[in-house]
Design a protein around this nucleic acid. Sequence first.
DNA 1: TCTGGGGTCCTAGGACCC
DNA 2: TCTGGGGTCCTAGGACCC
Length: 343
Amino acid sequence: MTALLHVDMDQFVAAVEILRRPELRGRPVVVGGAGDPTARRQVVSTASYEARAFGVHSGMPLRRAAQLCPEAVFLPTDPAAYGEASERVMAVLRRFPVDVEVWGWDEAFVGGDIADPEALAAELKAAVFAETGLTCAIGIGDNKLQAKMAARFAKPGGIHRLTTAGWMAVMGERPAADLWGIGPKTSRKLDELGLHTVAQLAAAPEADLVDRFGPRQAAWLPVVAAGGGDTQINTEPWVARSRSRENTYAEDLSDLDVISREVAAMARALTAEVVADGREITHVAVKVRYVSFFTPTREMKLRSGPTTDPEAVEQAAVSLLAKFEWRRPVRLLGVRVNLAMPD
DNA sequence: TCTGGGGTCCTAGGACCC
DNA sequence: TCTGGGGTCCTAGGACCC
């Protein structure tokens, strides 16, 4: 069985910022929101390793991060810069005689005819650093799951290999929640069934899982726990199935006219973006988060068929507002459009 | 110092038709 | 005077990932 690699950039967003501000190297850096540590309702996108040492992590409110690490440098997120840096990294990987499957900004699977995976990993790492100034960890495995998990052991900046033969010795006693694809909800359900470790889940009869998880997940869970997984590297360019905008407001909204205008503006902006990409819109969805954090969504298929007409999309989005209750203020509004898949 | 933003995929229930 | 299934479309929600 030929190995495949998972390339995972180290603290990617923070690393891109440090690259253009070398004086920040070695300091705690927190990237998130507009970069204002006093702002409400904004969270950490990425913390540098130095900031993580203070307990700062992704998803944490910026104000909490500032409390834990007052000396940190706070920076606004700059998605365009991260996208460009990502392109440079992926271009380096693609120059090697391998198949590359891009996975978000800062990750990629690498496969193909790989004779010596450790040697290839070392070459990739060196080339990425030489040409972009960014470091990465590389995991090697017999499939994507193993490579992805191996990259965690390799972080930061190392190379680590997992194999089917060695999987259980390394992973068996770890919590099932460590596995890629098992989040907090699934992990809690597994705990309730007495399945706490990877080894226990791997040995669980599918019949014991079906009631709790349904047939598909019940079949999949023990396979993942045993270190099984997909080996297919998909080199096709990414084609988005949907695009969305959402905004959490620093101050709650109650006025339906204001809400309506906000939703209309998001719908128009989204339409402009996807039309610029040559895509057509099939469905429109609106998301509302009340102050209670209850977050319903309402969605509709456009009856007139796939469209590029901003008027139609705006009108659909605004019409969906009638399906919500407006007794309580809202903290978030969002619009999503589903896209027709090209042939 | 209450809880971001942008995605994907799966499931489940109701409507409707045969 | 009541009983089926199956199949597909549509919408809502849940879970997970980065």
